[in-house]
Amino acid sequence: MPGETIKSMVPITFLYRNRVGQALETYIDGLKDKKILGIKCPACDKVYVPPRTVCGCCHKKLDTYVEVEQQGTLENFTVAHVTIEGGEIKDAEPYVIGMIKLKGADSLLSAVVKGVAVDKVKTGIRVKAVWKEETQGSYSDLAYFEPA
């Protein structure tokens, strides 16, 4: 019967851009000055990094930016063997994605961790931020973390 199965497909593409909010803009401006900024909730005292404008837990508007330290502890990690871009999973040289608790912050920051062998990395190690030499006001200014 004609049309029992269909083989024809037509492509669809989308193109978007997204304006960041006030908190992330402030965070990005901080990166340009080689500072890591968080934001403090007046109700629960938690410091969120990167900053966001509302504490979901307390339903409070946040506007007190605080600088947190550039050193912290590796709380969790995965050794990545791939990258995912546009939904495509591509093999990569193994690298470490860490979840880092910076001193002065209550939330974890995700970042690439270098300077430690992928089979030697473990939770609890002290790490510090490494900056791009020339910062330009972008997420990649904070290049990666390495053992402190």
């Binding site: 990258t83 995912i84 939904g87 997420y139």
Partner: peptide, 25 residues
């Protein structure tokens, strides 16, 4: 590609452009 749809769930202003944190990781 399912990972593409999954990546559209991530925060477009922060996690998505950084490319580290996704459903798989």
């Amino acid at each position: 590609r399912a990972p593409m749809i999954n990546s559209y769930v991530m925060d477009p202003a922060y996690e998505r452009p950084r490319g580290l944190i996704n459903f798989h990781s």
